[in-house]
Structures are given as structure tokens and as C-alpha cells.
């Protein structure tokens, strides 16, 4: 049995509507896995299953070969960190306080913040390039800056698996690239990174890709094998071209209306 996250026959129904129709997906334990597919294909639903926050209608999710839902909540939170889309808070938290939230699964019953917790949170902010804002109010930051802080909070959790839902949503090109580059470097450091990506032009940064269409897995595997022009054309109903990016040499997807 390989490590990482594995789903077996995963079916999710919401209010009687089937969103996922039996997904068998193995997320490799190493590298950056991109989850792509058109709107409504079930990316976010599948992602929430991978985090264990929601239970499937049927089927199982395995973490390192064991049932994810058999793990205690805190144990699960120590291993899997999640960055949701666009979370907002009414509270005037500073960025360091946001990062310290990530330490919660590691803290005792009373939740006292130790020196070690502070150090890990500060390192996480540093790693995410957000340490300059540690004492600033989270609410006062721009979208790209907030995304860094939220990434830092998930890093403070010291997870072995990091799951992100459209981490580049609403970011400008520079902030998008910085985010995906950070995910890339985390994956290179041994964290299993799974990210739903709505922007196919960023998919070239991934090692592996899972392509969803209408709640089914259309293809999964190494990025170059999955993202072929024919498959993208069929799933997204566009004309597609796949080739090396002239600037970076990475796999690049170009699309046009048919």
C-alpha cells in the first residue's frame, strides 16, 4: 500500500444529488498534485473529502493505508492542514494570531501557547513571506497578503499533507505565481500538497494532475500524461494547445473557444 491519500469508490450526495460518482484516486505521497476540472465538476467536494472534514455518502478515504475517519479529530488536524477559499473573520486578529491558530491541534487541553508554538508560528510566517506583517491586523491586508498568512497558519500546523482549495483565486498574476512557487517548494521539501486549480496555466507547476469531469475522474497521473490537448478539449469544450512555455520551459496550456 502506498502512502499519501487514497480514495476508494468515493460517492458524495448532497440533498439527494450525486456530486461525486465513485472516485478512485491515489494522491502520491510526494510532490504537488493539482486537481483540475470545469466549474461544478466536484473539485471542492472531493477536496473536502480528502481533508476528512466531511464524510462520504459511501466509499472510503485512506491516509497512509488507514481509514481517515478512524483518526481522532486532533490527530487528523496534526497531519492534514487545509486552506479554504477566502475565509474572512469578524475578529481583529493580528497575522501572528492567525498563524498561532494553526498550533491548536498541537496544544494541550487548556490550549496554552508555548514558546515553541510561537517559534513555529513565526517560522511559518517567515516561510510564507509574511513575517513583515506579523503584528498587523489580518483584515487590513490585501488578498495576496492574506493568502500568504493563511498559508503560514496551515504551515504552523506542521502537516504532512497540505490541501488547498483554489489557492490562487482572486490573486493577481504576480501573487498567483508566488503562491504556486511556495507550494512547489513545500512539495520539494517533502510535504504532500494537493491543490484544486481553476487556472490551467498553473497546472504545469504540478507533478501529478487529477482531472475531474461531472463528478467522475477523467484521468489521473503525471501532468504531461493527463493534460493532453485532446483531453482538455473534450472536458472543457475548448480548443487546446499544450507545449513548453517559452519563458519557463514548463508545460503550458493554451486554450481558445472552438
Amino acid at each position: 500500500m502506498s502512502g499519501g491519500l487514497v480514495t476508494q469508490g468515493l460517492v458524495v450526495e448532497v440533498d439527494g444529488t450525486r456530486i461525486l460518482h465513485g472516485i478512485d484516486l491515489a494522491v502520491p505521497a510526494t510532490g504537488l498534485t493539482g486537481l483540475v476540472g470545469p466549474n461544478g465538476s466536484g473539485k471542492s467536494t472531493l477536496l473536502r473529502q480528502l481533508t476528512g472534514v466531511e464524510s462520504p455518502t459511501s466509499g472510503t478515504v485512506l491516509l497512509d493505508g488507514g481509514d481517515l475517519h478512524a483518526l481522532g479529530r486532533r490527530e487528523r488536524a496534526r497531519r492534514i492542514a487545509v486552506v479554504e477559499q477566502e475565509a474572512a473573520s469578524e475578529l481583529a486578529l493580528t497575522c501572528l494570531e492567525v498563524a498561532l491558530l494553526g498550533r491548536m491541534p498541537h496544544q494541550g487541553f487548556l490550549g496554552s501557547t508555548s514558546r515553541e508554538d510561537r517559534r513555529v508560528a513565526e517560522d511559518a510566517l517567515d516561510r510564507a513571506g509574511a513575517s513583515a506583517w506579523a503584528d498587523r491586523s489580518f483584515a487590513s491586508l490585501s488578498g495576496g497578503e492574506r493568502q500568504r498568512v493563511r498559508l503560514a497558519a496551515s504551515l504552523a500546523q506542521e502537516p504532512s499533507i497540505l490541501v488547498l482549495d483554489e489557492p490562487t483565486n482572486h490573486l493577481d498574476v504576480r501573487a498567483s505565481l508566488e503562491t504556486i512557487a511556495l507550494l512547489r517548494s513545500l512539495a520539494d521539501d517533502g510535504v504532500t500538497v494537493v491543490a484544486a486549480l481553476h487556472d490551467l496555466t498553473l497546472a504545469g507547476w504540478a507533478d501529478h494532475v487529477a482531472l475531474l469531469a461531472d463528478g467522475r475522474l477523467a484521468a489521473a497521473g503525471p501532468v504531461a500524461e493527463v493534460l493532453t490537448a485532446e483531453r482538455i478539449a473534450a472536458v472543457y469544450d475548448v480548443r487546446a494547445h499544450v507545449g513548453p512555455d517559452p519563458l519557463t520551459g514548463r508545460l503550458a496550456v493554451t486554450v481558445a473557444l472552438p
Binding site: R48, T51, V53, G72, R73, R74, E75, R76, A77, R78, I80, A81, V82, E84, A87, A88, S89, E90, L91, L93, E97, V98, L101, G102, M104, P105, Q157
Partner: peptide, 16 residues
């Protein structure tokens, strides 16, 4: 404090 960013975030921090 875990409720600061809503239920799903609280759940991902190990809170029910």
C-alpha cells in the same frame, strides 16, 4: 478562537 474563520476551518483545526 478556532471559530474565528468559521466552522470548516474550526473542523480542520481538530474541533467539532
Amino acid at each position: 478562537d478556532a471559530f474565528a474563520f468559521g466552522d470548516r476551518h474550526a473542523a480542520s483545526l481538530g474541533i467539532h
